[in-house]
Design a protein around this nucleic acid. Structure first.
Lengths: 246, 246
DNA sequence: TCAAACCAAAGTGTTGACAGTTGACATAAG
DNA sequence: CTTATGTCAACTGTCAACACTTTGGTTTGA
């Protein structure tokens, strides 16, 4: 069973073992994801080092790793900047997520065990309850875990790493929360269809359904984004680039 | 036209602009890809710093970036080690490459322009000539460029970055070169099929053909690997983990 | 003879300081 | 009033030195 990895968040375990650099990296990630550091903002190495009570070395190393991860942008002699995310970026991330999600489903299909099925159907069941009561706060983490479970069940570590990186980047948009109540049921029906395709061990069908599930999410987001843009006239927005939502 | 990016190698431009860290990073990458640094080998920070006539700072930063890229493995207080690649790793990389290649094809299909078609057919034509004369040295870079062109023509920068990273990692295996002569023609026929699917603007078909093209490559590699393993008895191999080929 | 504890050398983790570059502000000319 | 220029503060890039951890060999004891 290669399905019992870390359950989506490797938070605590690697704090004592890893070096300062790793701690700093996770702290910066947290700051970005929590919104403490806004998009486009430049982060001062010295200030950050003092704030975390470390030297500039680990901070710089962490920034290099984050840059390779795509969270920040490095400009020589200027510093590191929190990546600005445009509408085009959102589309890119969604397209990639769709592709990886579909790939994971198609890879898992032939490997599917009874335990996999039990877990997957359990997720769908729970999500159904959450959707019926419009309990978004419960639906959302279940949804994340459902997809993460599929991906890590493939046993492909690289796929899992890429997928999780994309999910993190996706969170950077703060686009979640703009989903309508009725969309939950719709979304979960797609989950059910994916599980059915997996159960049939049909790789191709699994790919298609998983792909389109994410693609539908993309469309929903784009529509919501356009509505938002229409409601708020161009010049009233705080910044020219998109600060998608909060 | 988003197809005229850097033609696969961003070599010269970013040498003066980028800092020492970037130079060191590329140098280490080169060392790994060229085989100067074998798998599992530990690289000494001080020695490397002296060899490149820089301090340990840039070397360490470069290593952190390479670790996030997946080229090396970091063990606290032990150092950085060139990643050992097992058969399972090879399978992972191939599966991912298949997925990304298929995704790129399916994304490109609806966007395909006449210029795209001309370029793609040009590649296939050239590869056909190279395959007929069994000119592997000419076929190989054309094959790389053909696939890279498809991916970057999608305009999805993240997809392109991930894909190129995978290709680099793939080169780390040194698996190329084990292809049979007649496999070239077979491979190029698949190329032709992909182009035909793209021309029909059939995203789903394009995905399938591109995916299976890489999946076939994976099977060819695995077979060649098994043959190799049979020819060389277990205990005669230098190391327990695979050093796939050279 | 073997095993466990100890010791020393090597190497990484971290730090603080110095040098070079950048961007902005203030000043002066058109 | 606008535009060009010189100066300066802030910050990044880089480096050399110090502290701690690991590792392999050596010694000591059973």
């Amino acid at each position: 069973m290669s399905a019992d990895d870390t359950p989506s968040m490797p938070t605590v375990a690697a704090l004592k073992a890893h070096s300062l650099t790793a701690v700093v990296q996770h702290e910066i990630e947290r700051m970005i994801l929590s919104g403490e550091l806004g998009p486009g903002e430049r982060l001062n190495e010295k200030l950050l080092a003092d704030k975390l009570a470390v030297s500039r070395g680990p901070v710089r190393e962490a920034c290099r790793a984050l840059a390779e991860l795509g969270f920040v942008h490095l400009i020589p002699n200027r510093g590191v900047f929190i990546r600005k995310l445009t509408r085009a970026d959102a589309i890119e991330v969604y397209d990639l997520r769709a592709g990886l999600t579909g790939l994971a489903a198609s890879l898992l299909a032939p490997l599917l065990t009874a335990e996999h099925m039990a877990r997957l159907e359990g997720f769908v069941e729970e999500m159904e309850q959450a959707a019926e009561t419009a309990d978004f706060g419960r639906f959302y983490p279940l949804n994340l875990e459902f997809h993460d479970y599929i991906v890590r069940s493939t046993g492909n570590g690289r796929l899992l790493k890429l997928y999780r990186g994309l999910v993190k980047e996706f969170h950077l948009f703060r686009t979640h929360g703009l989903v309508q109540r009725n969309a939950l049921l719709e979304s979960n029906k797609e989950h059910r269809d994916i599980v059915a395709a997996l159960k049939a061990k049909d790789g191709s069908l699994s790919y298609g359904r998983a792909f389109h599930h994410v693609a539908n999410g993309k469309q929903r987001m784009l529509r919501a984004l356009d509505d938002l843009a229409e409601a708020v006239p161009e010049r009233q927005r705080k910044k020219p680039e998109m600060r998608l939502i909060e």
